[in-house]
Every structure is written in structure tokens, then in C-alpha cells.
Design a protein around this nucleic acid. Structure first.
Lengths: 343, 343
DNA sequence: AACCACGTTCGAAGCGCTTCGATTCAATTC
DNA sequence: GAATTGAATCGAAGCGCTTCGAACGTGGTT
């Protein structure tokens, strides 16, 4: 193994000088820098990360805590993870993969054994046991997907207000003049959860701004409730040709109930969902999706900023992406082109 | 931060004794062990992983190299990753996530900077640049998904021969007496790829053993070729009521062509695919799936064994899982039960 | 009673790096 | 020409752990 001492000898300098060349923490003359650089290249020197962590008390590793069990939308998680790793590498960091199964104890372990400098935690619940632990740990952390307002912690999330507005804008541009909104169960709005209200607020404001008729109703997730709400919407907003749904669990029933009422989807009633991409894909509905790639990138950038002593905003909201699926037919395979035929 | 010296003082022993209690590398009297353990608990001591890596030249980290870009089946990758992390933790190891994008240079970096003790590499190509590097690196490695026969390297893969046989057995048990096989393009069999032939061999042997009629044909991936092959199969194996397909790209066309020929799927012709689960799910076909969870677990166990100086078999084949999807209707949402109503 | 052997425990030397005060030397100033 | 500065470099002291040889008691042996 090539050590910093080997490099120093080879370049005819002290080990500390090599270190300063590497970290840039003290000025080094251009000539020395060149010479050391050349020695590093020739010897193929790579600093030992353990020694670095020990002496410098920085690991250059960030822990990514993911919900890997079933029940979450794996492709979204994966895309997010991919983006995190790529961005982390751009900052010369590595990524330690931790499952949510380990819970708060896992965070304590990773921080306590100095395996990572900071945390990226996905899928944090409203009353998550990890939040207080994260604060105690005193290590930089970025939370994802839920804007758990927590002092000292940094959160990244989709801008639900913009998402609500985006749906309206999209539908108005398609010519719709009366748009319904089927939201989460009433209780969700009562609780000050935030994201449900913000979506609704964005929807309502946009409808107002664009001068289209709109009616918004909450809905429980079971079938009968959905049927009732859909019926009410069709009655109250008689010229309704579009419906924005912000209720994952009800989404399937919504489509079914509309069809049961004799409305074709999307010909008679265009449905736009705010939900995980997978679900919309399955039902072939236009949807506002979570921009997992941007989310991952931004999360890492925020964490790196915190590691560098900066104090980024407590909450970052990402612009929603609307993905139109109208006109999609039955599932069709993506088939690669046939290989070139000889002759 | 609590160090080993703090623990030693608290327990009234030398630091080395604490180390031996922790690692078990030398005998420690039961009484001392108790006392040290108690001190560790009381002080909440957690060893510094960097210091450990430096002194002991073992990181207790394994690098997981995943293909995270599009084009691979994310859910499979994710399930595999999940299984890897869980199993690694059981062996007191952590997992460093590396993307395949980093290529061979990434492996060199991780090994060179002593970030990990060994590698788990998924989706290794037939002529992968990483294979020679992996061998040079001299670190334990386990390759997944492709049985790249490489001396010194350990591979885990699905047992394709058993997969072919499993399809036949399943169909015979359902009462089918004439089974077709639509395989990969001819060129794949010509190349000594291995897995294609093995699947076919397993299929043929099982058909023979079970005494059912069978015909196997290769197929190019484009539509016309598939139509021709399906036509030939129906003509040559006139009483064919089942078809095993080992050709991801053609799978969609196979179903379409069968229907175009007036055969209902699966009522008239049962189709069993050997392909990623996602695809079969989309087409609602019974399939042999890659047991990602077992794969992950086994891979870690093999790697840990190698880290401990053992020499596990160069190739481990996993039994295929057949997942029956006959009788599945249109996509249906899994809806949570409605919340309890008051009154 | 002196001896050996063995199970335990101790002490010290590193592992490879960062960091901080000290040192050097050339350029500037009076 | 001596004193002052400041940039560039050096040297040494750790960071917290593992590991190895040595030291320490015991109990059993001669």
C-alpha cells in the first residue's frame, strides 16, 4: 500500500505538505503542488479513508436511509437513490445504504461509530421516532418527502401548492372549463398536515385565476364514499369535464365510479391524479409525479451545504412535473429494433 | 466522544482488554468480560469505525455495485438491495452503495481508499471491464446475475436449467400434454452464453421425463419473426396447449400473435414466461421469477465467507420460483380498509 | 520449596492521516 | 545593513483502535 509518506519521500517534501496539496487547506507553491501531484500519479496513491476519518473527523460518507420494505414505490426510491449517489460522488462523497428497518437505533449506530457525516432520510412520518434522535445526534440531516417542520432539520418536498395549480393549468389549456377536485379524507384537512391543504389551496387559487368553475370535496377512501362524492361532484358541477384527484387510495374507485355513472375516462371526464407515478401508470392517468431525480440531487446539495457549515433554508419545495398519459392505449412493450439482417 | 480508553478506565482494565472483549480474539475471564460489558453499556461506548479500519485493516463495509440507470428492472434491484443490507447487518457489516456508472474506476477507488472489504456486483456483462479489475484488486467479490466464469471470483445466479424444468412440471400438473418453447434468438444459442442453453436443456429434459410432446424454436425479437415462429409452433405441435417463452423482448408479441391466431390466452394456450417479474405482471402471465431476496442473502453470505478466508463454490445456482398468475383479472387497487366510523 | 506452564491481563508500538505551532527564507521596509 | 514581514514548508503530536510480546498470578508438578 502506498502511503502519504511514500508520496512525500518521492516528491522530496514533508507528509504534511502532501496533505495540504490534497486538501488545499494551506497554500502550497505551484511548483511543489505540481511535483507532489506527479508523485501521486506515478505511485498511484490513494488516501486511506479510515485514517482520514480518524485524523480529520470527517468520513466523506453520507448515510442514505431508505424504506426498502414493500409498500413503498420501489422505482421512485430507486431513482432517488441513483440521483443521490451520483450527486454525492460529484462532491467526492460516498453513500452508505441504511434501511428504515433499523429505525432510530440505526441512526445512533451510524453516527456513534462515525460511519457517516450526515443523514438523508426518506419517508419520514409525521410523528417519527427518528426525528428527535436526528436532532440529538447533532449531525446534519435532510429529510425527504414529508415537510416535518423541525427546527434545525432541513426538509425537501414536492411543492404541493404548485402541484394543485399545475393540474388546473394543464386542464384549462386542454379546454376544460369546469374542474372538480376530489381530495383526501376530511380528517386529513382537519389535522394541520399541510400538504393536503396546500394542494387544495393551489388548486382553488389557480381555478379562480383561470376563471374556471370548480368544486372541491374531501373523500374517504372506501368505495361507497367515493361513489357518493363522485355523484355529488357530477350533480353540483354539472358541466364538469375534468377531475383532479389527490387521494391515492380512492383513485381506483374514482375511475370505476365515473365509468359506472356512464362517463368515459378520459373522453368525458379527464382525470388528473397527484400520486406516485406507478399508480397513475397502472391506471393510465395523467398525473403529477414526484421528481425523484431532482429531489435526490437537491437533498445531497443541501446536506453538503450543511456539512460545510452553511445554513440552508429549512424547507425546499420542488416544482411538480406533470406527465400526460392521455391517448395511451393498452400496455405495449418497448421492443428493441430487430438486429441488422445480413444481405 | 467515548473512547476505548474511557471504557478501560471505567472498568479498571487496559484498553487492550476492552478490545479483546469486543473482538473475542483472545480469551478474557468471564468476570472481566462482564465488567467491561457493563462499562460499555453505561458509557454508551461505540467504537470508531475509522480507527478500527486503520488499526485492523478491516472496514466491515461491503460495496454494493448496482445498475441504477433506467433499463434495468428497478423493483428487482431494489428488492435485492434490501435483502443485501438486511443480511449484511446480520453479519455486522454496512453497505456502501456504488453505481455501475463508476465502472472499473469506481472499484479501484473503493478498494484503494479502503472504503470496503469486498464487492457485490450486480449485472455483470459477458465481457465486463470490471471482471479483470476485480481479480487484480485481490478483494473478495461476488458477481450476480451472470455466471461469468472467472477463476477466483464467485458467482450467484438463477438455476436456469431448473427454471426450464419448472415450467414444464407446472404445466404438466395443470394437465397440458403438448408444450411449445419459444426461445431467444438463434444467435444467443450459437454463442456459448450458457444460460439460454441451460434453460432449453432443462425444458427438453423435463418434457422427456414427463412424457409430453414438445417443440422448441428460437425466435428473433421483432414482431414478424415472432408471428412466424408462433405459426410454426401451432402447426407442428398441433395439440399444443401451452407455451414456455424465454425471450423477454418477444413476449408481448407472442401473446398478441396467439390472440391474432384466434387462441385465447390463457384459456386455449397457457403461456409461462421466464422473465423479470415486472414484465410478467404487466402481461399477467405466469412466470418464473428471479428470487431477488434469496439472491441477495446468498450473495452476502458468500462474500462474508470469503472475507473469513473460506473458499466457497465458484458458482451457486438458486432454485427458480414459479409464480402463477392465471385467473388474475384487470388491475385492481389494493385499498386499505375504511377507517372505523364513530357511532 | 523451587519450578514450570497456562490462562489472563498489561503496555507500547504502530496503522496513515490531519493539524498546529515552529521554522525557514526571500522580499520588503526603515 | 539590520529588522520586519509573510508565504511556504517542516516536524511532531495526536486521532482511537488493534496487536504483539511481555508480565503477572495461579495451580500443579518434581
Amino acid at each position: 500500500m502506498v502511503t502519504i509518506v511514500d508520496v512525500a519521500k518521492h516528491a522530496g517534501v514533508a507528509p504534511s505538505t502532501v496533505s495540504y496539496v490534497l486538501t488545499g487547506k494551506r497554500p502550497v507553491s505551484a511548483e511543489t503542488r505540481m511535483r507532489v501531484g506527479e508523485s501521486i500519479r506515478q505511485l498511484g496513491y490513494q488516501p486511506h479513508s479510515g485514517a482520514r476519518a480518524l485524523a480529520g473527523s470527517r468520513t466523506n460518507v453520507l448515510a442514505l436511509v431508505l424504506p426498502l420494505r414493500e409498500g413503498v414505490h420501489l422505482p421512485v426510491v430507486m431513482r432517488f437513490a441513483s440521483s443521490v449517489v451520483t450527486t454525492a460522488r460529484e462532491h467526492d462523497m460516498d453513500v452508505l445504504l441504511v434501511t428504515a428497518d433499523e429505525g432510530a437505533a440505526g441512526l445512533r449506530r451510524v453516527a456513534g461509530t462515525a460511519r457517516a457525516d450526515g443523514f438523508l432520510v426518506m419517508d419520514v412520518g409525521l410523528d417519527d421516532e427518528r426525528v428527535p434522535v436526528l436532532r440529538d445526534l447533532g449531525r446534519p440531516a435532510v429529510l425527504l418527502g414529508h415537510p416535518t417542520v423541525a427546527n434545525g432539520l432541513t426538509c425537501v418536498d414536492l411543492d404541493f401548492e404548485a402541484a394543485g395549480a399545475r393540474c388546473v393549468d394543464h386542464l384549462v389549456e386542454l379546454g376544460h372549463r369546469a374542474i372538480g377536485f376530489l381530495g383526501a379524507p376530511g380528517a386529513v384537512y382537519a389535522r394541520n398536515t399541510g400538504f393536503a391543504q396546500r394542494t387544495l389551496a393551489g388548486f382553488s387559487a389557480a381555478a379562480m385565476r383561470r376563471g374556471v368553475a370548480s368544486t372541491a370535496l374531501p373523500a374517504e377512501r372506501h368505495r361507497d364514499a367515493v361513489r357518493a362524492v363522485v355523484g355529488t361532484l357530477l350533480r353540483e358541477l354539472t358541466r364538469m369535464t375534468a377531475l383532479v384527484v389527490h387521494n391515492e387510495a380512492a383513485l381506483g374507485w374514482v375511475v370505476e365510479c365515473l365509468r359506472a355513472e356512464g362517463r368515459r375516462v378520459p373522453e368525458d371526464v379527464a382525470v388528473v391524479a397527484i400520486c406516485p407515478d406507478e399508480l397513475a401508470e397502472q391506471l393510465r392517468l395523467t398525473s403529477v409525479q414526484l421528481p425523484a431525480d431532482v429531489l435526490g440531487r437537491r437533498a445531497v446539495e443541501l446536506l453538503v451545504a450543511k456539512l460545510n457549515g452553511q445554513r440552508p433554508p429549512a424547507l425546499t419545495l420542488l416544482p411538480p412535473k406533470l406527465f400526460s398519459r392521455t391517448g395511451h392505449a393498452a400496455p405495449r412493450l418497448v421492443v428493441a429494433r430487430p438486429p441488422q439482417q445480413a444481405g
